[in-house]
Design a protein around this nucleic acid. Structure first.
Lengths: 150, 150
DNA sequence: CCGTTTTAAGACAAGGATATCTTTTTTGTT
DNA sequence: AACAAAAAAGATATCCTTGTCTTAAAACGG
């Protein structure tokens, strides 16, 4: 599996916030119900994202979470980095420590190309871009329905 | 992590066999010591590879494992498929079931390109190719040393 | 000041991946 | 036939991810 469940859920939740737009706080409970994700698990994911500075959180009635700063400054790449760490973008495909151009595994040259392609793909996708895509329609963030039908 | 430890070890072991060349049986014990991989764990991995038809095994003195058929017909892609299954090459990056061109997640179009690039990279690497690379020198299959220094 | 809503934090449970150990079966050698 | 070498198979242990549950802390409204 490329991404952990933590990252899968975290990305979906962040993209959902981007689709909602604005700077209102949205409760984690609401998000978890909308996206069919375990509430308590999602809470912990947002706590990690808060520590990484990607979201703001606020307690009490009408509290919740929101994207921190501008959605145009946050990429899917940053969400994965905050939740799964840098391994996907830095480690050897065979798990060898210190696999570099000078001390390569047999797949090194080829893997770093694929790895860079993944990183670039995730880096050029900002939350703002995806939010606009979602509002334009035709995309899904959960199993059953289109985003607009959430 | 892109690949499981099972696949990481399995690929390294298969590439090692390709580097050795010939159709002699090599004992799993020897391979596990050469590559610093747990013997019992590697045994189970080879059992899976045997069931998938990628290796032959033979018991008793001078027994062991060897690549089944021609090393030019087996790719890294096939090893991953046998050990980790098809998920990496078929599933949605966000884990959504039924994520297709008609019912896409917001990353679908971009992800299938990266996914295909990975699959193609692994598909064009045959064990024979890598075996030749290893014998030519300069590559590693374990943490410390070059393959020729195994 | 009290009750409600919400995130924060911690404890715990289930499951799978990883790893180790033991026993069985097959094969070759003496 | 007896022994040794090696894979096959099964049992068990450890760890991390995933998921659930409970309690605490913060914020708001009456």
């Amino acid at each position: 599996m490329l991404l952990s469940k933590t990252s899968e859920y975290g990305i979906r939740a962040m993209l959902h916030l981007a689709g909602v737009g604005g700077d209102e706080y949205v409760s984690v409970k609401k998000i978890s119900e909308t996206l069919d994700i375990s509430f308590h698990f999602l809470t912990k994911i947002f706590q990690q994202l808060a520590k990484s500075g990607l979201i703001d959180s606020y307690r009490g009635p009408n509290g919740g979470v929101r994207i921190s700063g501008s959605a145009s400054k946050i990429t899917v790449r940053a969400v994965v980095g905050a939740l799964d760490g840098e391994d996907l973008f830095s480690k050897c495909v065979l798990g060898l420590p210190g696999c570099t151009k000078d001390h390569p595994c047999p797949l090194h040259e080829h893997w770093i190309k694929s790895r860079s392609a993944i990183e670039q793909m995730m880096s050029e996708k900002t939350l703002e871009d995806v939010g606009a895509d979602l509002r334009a329609g035709g995309y899904r963030l959960k199993a059953g329905a289109l985003w607009s039908e959430d």
